[in-house]
Write a protein that binds this DNA or RNA. Structure first.
Lengths: 361, 361
DNA sequence: TATCGATGATTAAACGATTAATCAAGCGAT
DNA sequence: ATCGCTTGATTAATCGTTTAATCATCGATA
């Protein structure tokens, strides 16, 4: 209720015109003379007029609010996403309502329903791994991965995987262990696909899935990376910085120095990545751009939509659905130990990227 | 606009009564006979009636939405907080609008203004370190620390500090380095105060502040913990798990095994705490309870407030402003190395808490 | 000069709910 | 039988904005 501020009628009365004229002048819609419009804008600004969203919503059927649905709000990416979406939305004049789904599917449905009941104009959904977004009854932007059908916009996870892989290859790694969490995740599969494709010739790649392993051995169980090192693996390419962190500390704990004896890479450039020792090499998404595209497409769809009609179909589409990832090289990746080098390899090139100090045996 | 769903009048027409009666029946306010009320509720449920928030907001001046303001949305605690607040708010019938302030003070003010312009009924603010909440013009619940004036509810950070300290003391630690980020933070000061107070007799405590150090030596600089170990420090009590992680990896990297040669503790039980090796000993806040109290107090204040009056004064108060923290003992804390033990110490007791394997020299 | 069009502003209805004021009916007591 | 009170429901106003329809004015055209 615009906290006791001036209403439209207040401005109208002040200038001796009708409320409709004020509305027209401010929205630039009806027919208002230039000078009167200017005068109206001036006094509106002077009085600090802020339109009542409630009044407008009632009349137009638009609440100027969008919902943000994340599968797992405990996801460490959440801050990045929320921040980016909020920025994009607020500069487009939209508010952001959050919906928690605690990973649970039924809870997610409930959360979406609550948003609908609140009459959001649209929603941004980062779907839970593998979940298909059912028709929700308002425009929806989906941020998942380019290979997902119905995806609106996403980082080029595959390309990010390629970049990580190229980086490791250039350093001289030939036996790489890819560490993922759950094979049902589209994002993870794309990242891994990218890694494998870039490493296809001349390198051996194996994949370790954490979640199945933990179902067997219990949460937080060791991943057995020391054994993998013994098997000749020199690099651990993790599908998220969280797993990279896990790998890093497990290796360190086992006395395997990173990056001298083994390299570790992650994804997403999460908060701790630059802070740990050694700082993590990772691939970052351009969340600001992704959010801008998602919200842009959403707002466009909202504008084109007749607010009185009911459900609409598929998620909205954007012109630019694929945003490149950026490789961030830090200290957790370097050339593999000498003994692992294959004959004919350009060791010189690889060595230059290795951090100073702590040389290998 | 309750997406093409049935309106009040629709129910009224179906039953041949007036809209006012339906409204009264549903809200239980006016005078409606029991059987008619029941019939109305039944058909409302059957038709799937959802009241239009916009219509209601316009009439009552209540939007049933609250704002959530966090100083730094990149804060890794954000997911926990947001999740808890959202849960508490939604079960009280409120939606949660997020406001990003990117750490910046002016941006924070802007964000708060946007929330006001959106007519939130109240807001929950987790203030930036040291910031006093100016009068915002709607009820406000502040979550900071019990010692902050104007605080509504918070974890007992001091008590959490004491628990960490008691734990370390019981393990036998006598030289403890406390690691904080910024001395201007109320929360950090309380945590450190608690630690120091419990360690006052019979132990030596020093505090290391990261932010000042980084201003000198650059972001991500080493904290020099190996030197501290050489100086005889056996435990590093960090004011956040993020710093604990930094300390842990720096120590591991320097070849100092945790917890055999040095213990590391954190705060907040962040996402990675159970996952790293060794898993972090930490102190957790009961965010669910804190959020419930904050939102409860807020909702109460909203209910008592006359929606037409303007600014109100101080933040709302709650009966129970101090929620105890919970010590979570994991593998990163153990008895200090033998050589550090003071004569007359009950080493047996301390040893029992130490993890098996990897014995000290 | 009467008419047509364009221009600039006003009127009034509508969005969907809440609520104070009003009204009708039933019943007990005077 | 009438007055007054309670009960149960209706009427109508209201919140603040938007917008279709209307109206008045003036200049130009026939």
């Amino acid at each position: 209720m615009a906290r006791s501020g001036p209403k439209l009628t207040r401005i109208a009365r002040t200038l001796g015109v009708s409320a409709a004229t004020v509305s027209n002048a401010l929205s630039g819609k009806g027919r208002v003379s230039a000078e009167l419009a200017e005068k109206i804008r001036a006094t509106a600004a002077e009085l600090g007029y802020v339109p009542s969203l409630a009044g407008r919503a009632l009349r137009t059927g638009r609440t100027a609010a969008i919902g943000l649905v994340l599968p797992d709000i405990a996801n460490p990416l959440f801050p990045q996403i929320a921040q980016a979406i909020e920025l994009a939305a607020s500069s487009a004049g939209y508010g952001v309502l959050i919906a928690d789904s605690r990973g649970d599917v039924t809870t997610q449905t409930k959360a979406i329903e609550r948003l609908i009941d609140r009459d959001v104009d649209g929603m941004v959904i980062v779907p839970r791994r593998g979940t298909r977004i059912t028709d929700v009854g308002c425009p929806v932007a989906v941020i998942d991965t380019p290979s997902t059908p119905g995806n609106t916009v996403a980082a080029d996870h595959w390309g990010g995987g390629r970049q990580i892989a190229e980086h490791l290859k250039a350093l001289g790694h030939r036996r790489v262990l890819v560490i993922g969490n759950n094979p049902a995740s589209n994002v993870q599969n794309d990242r891994i696909g990218g890694i494998r494709s870039a490493l296809a010739e001349g390198a051996f790649v194996e994949t370790l899935w954490i979640e199945p392993l933990e179902r067997e051995q219990g949460k937080g169980c060791p991943l057995g990376l020391a054994e993998k090192v013994a098997e000749g693996f020199t690099a651990f390419a993790c599908v998220s910085d969280l797993h990279a962190l896990r790998a890093l500390t497990e290796l360190q704990r086992a006395g395997i120095n990173v990056p001298e004896k083994a390299s570790v890479t992650g994804f997403d450039d999460l908060i701790w990545s630059p802070v740990v020792t050694p700082a993590l090499t990772t691939a970052r998404m351009d969340m600001t751009r992704i959010a801008a595209i998602a919200v842009g497409a959403l707002v466009k769809a909202i504008g084109e939509r007749d607010p009185t009609d009911a459900a609409i179909g598929a998620p909205v589409t954007a012109d630019d659905a694929e945003v490149p990832m950026q490789l961030v090289v830090r200290q957790s990746s370097a050339a593999p130990p000498r003994i692992q080098f294959q004959p004919g390899q350009t060791t010189a090139n690889a060595r230059t990227s290795a951090p100073e100090g702590e040389h290998q045996p």
